[in-house]
């Protein structure tokens, strides 16, 4: 682990940010009609280490604006369509490298993997196929690294691994990295994307919600900041636990965020869902999250927020 650089450098970088108020217009236009049927959104492709998942060819099509785009250029632009701003999903590793300085990331618990604790039919083969598909052991990457020179504890989920579902491994890895952050007085950043708790591990999955929130309770008691970044989609058991208790809660544009699935709500209430229901913009307009941050601004914004939240600590250490 490289030591954090001189904090003054971090401040310089912060000041050099293209302004802290570069957020999108405070009232973004309502999401387009295509956002209204979130679960039917075309399955986008992603770059990075999971290349073999992508269809052959050097071009891809933006599912929102239908523009044909050059895949290499898309990757260079953090998988954001430069025509319409559509945020393609990122793999966990792509997200890590988009946030962490150079090669400063030191992964924790890289070998931890799930066991079929309930002998649930089909779980082992599901795990195996997800491991093969993603090259990951489970649905989260955790570790310590530098973000604009500041040492942070980072957890990043990957929707490609069984819908980013949280079982024992996701809960344990996040809890451990939060506990490390508490011990080392570090801020925690978790980028979530998940369909919820992992059914295959039954009640053990549900208990990860309490476990992660408990670790954050003790982290927060030390007046250490936790920033939750919600990416598309973050639902159910993950949303009803660590993802919702950030000192700051940020979301990527148009990310689907909620507790119950839209179909369940529709079936239960027999009501039409409001326009843009359960999108990042809907949550912001209802006062439920702090800000929507476009992906290309995320790293700089996180650095600035941490400069604010850690200001008195930084001053005490200077």
């Amino acid at each position: 682990m490289t030591e954090p650089v001189d904090p003054s450098e971090s401040k310089l970088k912060t000041r050099a940010l293209p302004g802290v108020e570069t957020r999108e217009p405070s009232i973004t236009p309502p999401p387009s009609a295509s956002d209204q049927t979130p679960l039917k959104r075309p399955k986008p492709v992603s770059g990075g280490p999971r290349k073999r998942l992508m269809p052959e060819g050097i071009w891809t099509k933006c599912p929102k604006c239908q523009e044909t785009i050059y895949r290499k250029e898309l990757e260079a632009k953090l998988n954001v369509c430069w025509q319409c701003g559509y945020h393609f999903p990122l793999t966990a590793w792509e997200r890590v490298s988009s946030l962490i300085d150079g090669d400063s990331f030191v992964q924790a618990d890289s070998e931890m993997s799930s066991v079929d604790v309930l002998s649930f039919p089909g779980y082992l083969s599901k795990l195996e196929s997800n491991q093969q598909k993603t090259g990951m052991k489970d649905a989260v990457i955790t570790g310590l690294g530098l973000l604009h020179g500041r040492k942070v504890a980072l957890g990043v989920m990957d929707f490609g691994f069984n819908g980013g579902s949280m079982g024992s491994v996701v809960g344990e890895k996040l809890t451990r990295i939060i506990e490390s952050a508490t011990e080392q007085s570090l801020p925690v950043i978790i980028c979530s994307t998940s369909g919820g708790a992992r059914m295959y591990e039954g009640m053990f999955s549900l208990m990860q919600m309490a476990k992660t929130c408990g670790a954050l309770a003790y982290h927060g008691r030390e007046k250490l900041p936790f920033i939750s970044v919600l990416t598309d989609p973050t639902m159910a058991g993950v949303m009803a636990s660590f993802a919702s208790v950030g000192d700051l809660i940020l979301a990527e544009p148009a990310a689907r965020i909620g507790f119950a699935g839209p179909r369940v709500i529709k079936d239960t209430t027999k009501a039409e869902l409001p326009k843009g229901f359960q999108t990042a913009e809907f949550l912001r307009d209802h006062g439920l999250i702090d800000a929507i941050v476009p992906r290309k601004e995320l790293k700089g914004r996180l650095a600035w927020y941490l400069d604010c939240l850690m200001a008195s600590r930084d001053a005490a250490q200077a």
Binding site: A240, S241, S244, I265, Q278, L283
Partner: peptide, 18 residues
């Protein structure tokens, strides 16, 4: 699982309790 519940942030209400 309802519209009002989501609008008033049911996920956060539960998470904060945890």
């Amino acid at each position: 699982p309802g519209i009002g519940a989501e609008e008033r942030h049911i996920a956060e209400a539960i998470a904060v309790n945890l």
